[in-house]
Amino acid sequence: MKLIEISNLIVYYNTSQGLVKAVDNVSLEISRGEALAIVGESGSGKTTLALSIPRLLPDNARILGGSIWLYPEKVDLTKLSEKELRRIRGRRIGVVFQDPMTYLNPVMKVGDQIAESIVYHQNCSLKEAKEKVLELLKKLKIPDAENVASRYPHQLSGGMKQRVMISIAISCNPELLIADEPTTALDVTVQAEVLELLRNLIQELKIALILVTHDLGIVAETCDKVAIMYAGKIVELADVYNLYRDPKHPYTVGLLDAVPTIKESESKISIIGGSIPDLINPPSGCRFHPRCPYMFEKCRQEEPPLVNFDKNRYVACWLME
C-alpha cells in the first residue's frame, strides 16, 4: 500500500553565493511497512530530501517544483498550509534527528518533551499523557522509566537521549518514521542497540521507515529498499539484496568498496578519486562524471535519466543504455 510518492521534487537553498541545488528532480515511493534507506556522502542532499516531506526545512529552502503525495487521501504536502501540516507532523509523520544532544530542548524535562505531542494530537490531559509516556518508555525497554522521564537531556547518556528522540517520534503511532542519521553520533554497541530497537518498532507498528545514512553497513541490516544519492540526484534505486550483490551505478560500486568491513573475504579497498562537487555549480551532464572511471563523452554533455533497468531497479547512468 503506497504511503508517500515523491515526484520530480526540486528543493534549492537561497544563499548569497547562489542557489544550492540540493535536491534536483527526485522521484521516490514508499509503502507501509517498508524500510527505505537514503544513502550518500555528506552534502548529497539526503537530509533536504527527507525533511522536505514534513516540510521542516530551513527558512532559505525553496520547494521549486514537484509534489509529495500522501496516501490514502492523496494530498500534496507541498501545497498544504502550515496549519494543515501541523495535523500531519508528529501525528502521521515522526522524525528522529541525528544529534540528540542539540535536537532535544535543554531546559525541558524529557518526559514533558515526549508528553507534549501526545497532549496535542490525542486530545488528552497532561496527566494521561504522562502515563502514556511511561508506557512508551517501558516499551522501548528503558529501565527506570519514571526516573528517566523526570530528567533533563544533559543528564542522560547519548544512547538514552536517542531513545527519547525515538519515543517523541513514535508517540502518536505515526505511519511514517523519518530517521536522519539516527546513530551517527553514537558508539558502535549503542548504535546496534538503537537499530535493533528501530527494527522491532517498524515490525511491530507496521510503519514505513525512511533511514537517512552514509553507512552502508547499517542499511544492510535494517532496510528493504535503497536509494543512492549523489549531488542532489538519485543515481540508483534498488532492493537491498540486489544492490549489494550486484551494484550497477559506478558510484554505488565505489561506495561499497570504499569502506573496509570485517567480512572474512574482504580486505582490499578500492577508491573513488576526487570529492563531492559544489552544488551551486554542479558538473554538467552526469553529476558524477568528473569522478567516474568509465566516463565517456556523452556523460559530460547529457544528463542520464533514472531508468527502470529491471524489476524494482532504477539506475541513472549512460553505461546502462
Partner: peptide, 23 residues
C-alpha cells in the same frame, strides 16, 4: 564485533547477534 554492521544483507541478517545492553 557482533555490533559492527556488515555491508552485506545476507550475512547481516543471518549472523548470530549477541544481545547488547547498557553503555
Amino acid at each position: 564485533i557482533s555490533a559492527v554492521p556488515i555491508p552485506d544483507p545476507e550475512i547481516a541478517r543471518t549472523k548470530k547477534r549477541i544481545p547488547i545492553s547498557g553503555e
